[in-house]
């Protein structure tokens, strides 16, 4: 077995790996300890998400209402299906990875190549899906109004269906000139403008008697509170300030901005792991193809990247539960 492991220059020394403490090679054990530390980093993120959610427990967005889109199915509300698909892709790529490790143990080079290839494809599909999910989330859905206190007001008709801003906004003609860098010494570029101004949304809201406002706070039944027409008008006129379309790190039309922040940070950090996992898998894939491990007599390197890849899947299992299910 000694000849099968890559030489580290520390053979024979107790902690150099030559003696295989715990019967695991140096590289494999260190991969495990890296995974432990990385798991703690992710737990820090997820626990911080839990902290903020408990802090604003009566006003946290419902994931089912946020992630309702499936590619190529416009306007069909389908909560959960796309994330479920992503979960399956990742679990399946874990399966092909572990099959590659198994084929490596049996020194079947061609099988390792094909299983590694399938794993890389699965990872790429997952990263692509996540990019799409981000784009949809950033673009937004119905649009909302933010109050002076930073709370989100969404619009409903009297039947309780969500209404998009574009459906009732009244266009108010206004002359708006953009200040350019050449006009001034102390120049700051303006932020991206929303499609409608708050005044336009307000005018449209006042003109349509069948529109109601829904706040982000839950009532005693656990549903977001819907205000009566009088309360809605008062809320918009007195407290409304901004139009919010989609989500970024400061504003989030679906509810509390922290929800968007944690979504970007946690799925982004996980997506970064998937991305690096795909890169490492590609490197190992080419090493398998050119026969590096065949000559070394051991496919243990495939096993080590396999550990990392399964860990990425493991993290997704938790992200899936805490972001989309609970």
């Amino acid at each position: 077995m000694d000849t099968t492991v890559a030489k580290t220059g520390t053979e024979g020394k107790t902690w150099g790996g030559g003696n295989k403490p715990l019967n695991a090679s140096y590289g494999k054990m260190m991969m495990w300890f890296f995974i432990v530390s990385d798991a703690l980093t992710f737990s820090g993120f997820v626990a911080a998400y839990g902290f903020s959610r408990f802090k604003f427990i009566d006003a946290w967005p419902i994931a089912d209402e946020v992630f309702t889109h499936v590619p190529f199915l416009h306007g069909v509300p389908a909560p959960m299906y796309y994330v479920a698909f992503m979960t399956f892709i990742l679990i399946f790529s874990s399966v092909t990875m572990v099959l590659a490790v198994d084929a490596g143990h049996k020194m079947q080079k061609n099988k390792v190549i094909w299983y590694m290839f399938a794993t890389i494809i699965g990872g790429a599909i997952f990263v692509g899906s996540q990019a799409w999910e981000w784009a949809t989330f950033i673009k937004g859905d119905y649009g909302a109004v933010e109050t002076k206190g930073g709370k989100i007001l969404q619009f409903l008709d009297t039947e309780g269906n969500r209404v998009a801003l574009a459906d009732f906004t009244e266009h108010i003609p206004s002359a708006r000139e953009v200040h350019l860098e050449k006009n001034g010494v102390w120049y700051d570029a303006e932020e991206t403008q929303t499609t409608f101004t708050f005044e336009e949304v307000k005018a449209g809201f006042l003109a349509n008697d069948n529109l109601l406002v829904r706040t982000q706070y839950y009532d005693e039944n656990g549903e977001p509170t819907v205000l009566s027409r009088e309360e809605s008008v008062a809320k918009i006129v007195n407290d409304g300030k901004l139009v919010v379309e989609g989500a970024n790190l400061k504003h989030n039309e679906y509810g509390h901005p922290l929800f968007a922040d944690f979504f970007f940070f946690i799925t982004g950090f996980h997506g970064f792991h998937v991305f690096t996992g795909v890169l490492i898998n590609i490197i190992i894939f080419f090493n398998v193809v050119i026969g590096t491990y065949e000559r070394r007599g051991s496919y243990e390197m495939v096993e080590k990247v396999g550990l990392y890849w399964h860990f990425v899947d493991l993290v997704w299992v938790f992200v899936f539960t805490f972001f989309y299910l609970v």
Partner: peptide, 26 residues
Amino acid sequence: RAVVWTGVFLICYLILILLIEGDYIY
């Protein structure tokens, strides 16, 4: 045990502390 117990213990502790604190602030 080195991997699983370490992780499970620290994660449980972190979650317990942060969730209690979050609920308190609420």
